[in-house]
Nucleic acid binder design. Sequence first.
DNA 1: AAGTCGGGGCA
DNA 2: TGCCCAGACTT
Length: 366
Amino acid sequence: MTYQLPSQQEFSARVLDWYDANARALPWRSLPGQRPDPYHVWLSEIMLQQTTVVTVGPYFDKFLTLWPTVQHMAAAPLDDILTVWAGLGYYARARNLHKCAIDICDKFAGTFPNNREDLLTLPGIGPYTAAAISSIAFDRAEVVVDGNIERIIARLFRIDTALPAAKKPITEYAAHLTPCGRPGDYAQALMDIGATICTPRNPKCAQCPVSVTCTAFAEGDMERYPVKAPKKAKPTRRGVIFWIEAEGGVVLLRRREEKGLLGGMMEFPSSPWQEAAIAPDAALEQLRESAGLNINGPMIHKTLVRHTFTHFHLELQPVVLVMAQKANLSLPGSSWVRPEEFENYALPTLMKKVVTSVQSPQTDFL
DNA sequence: AAGTCGGGGCA
DNA sequence: TGCCCAGACTT
């Protein structure tokens, strides 16, 4: 069976008509046809990378309140950005956000570049985000392809090539369909349709404005698309993490390496995270040597903390050590903090789980 | 092309 | 549980 490509005019008209009647009111979105603030578009697009609209909402509002312009953000310390970003994940985004704000102030005189090529030179802005900002904020007819639009296109044309190899043909189909008029609204409309109608499972084709031109709908095998490469199994890593408390109720925090997993974020001292489990006694001895810490006191085991990262599971055994002495050891990048002050530190969700475990009355054994 | 990089919501 | 999400960056 052969299918005919829908005309760009017919397709985009269906999409834009749907948008005029169904556009969601989102904090970073202007009225249909209106150009929003590029700073708002940029900030929202970075936050929305691999992150849902519902999750981003409160973070977007808080960032705009604290840093209303790109100049404000560029002037802020990176640690402040990380503290407010804490919990949103993919912390390289926060580091690149800060770098990007500085670059815009230094290299573009504080004005957002208004085209895809210049946007691509900025840290944290890749092919998708450059096209999205360019079309949404500057009304340029760029080809915007995110995960939602990938799924829509793959279903419209029943693309059997598996992702990520399918990215190229998908982009070609998308380019054919992208209109010159209202490109920003068109892109946002397709993303809305992907998020609410053309969902990964149980797509609501009865509500879809373009189901009439969808070959997967015609064949009834929508959920087969997009085809994806099989994923690797996640190994489990384990470790012991220490809540070291000194006189006055202060607890030891240290900063992680600038790059890599949870880069630049704060943590409680812990053993390395490896597949082979390590005993708390051995972990403490390692910490004494590596950190030069003279730690002593009885160890109290708290409830195991489980956490899943993108490519491994983690099991951390929290151990509480209350020392009957003053917090007189000072390591570079570490600080003694009272738990009431934790909100002012860049603690990722994993570390907040450790706080919850330690502060719950339950213990494994004494 | 494959691996790294969070966290939450969903069936 | 596994899958997905307005992906970018490194190797």
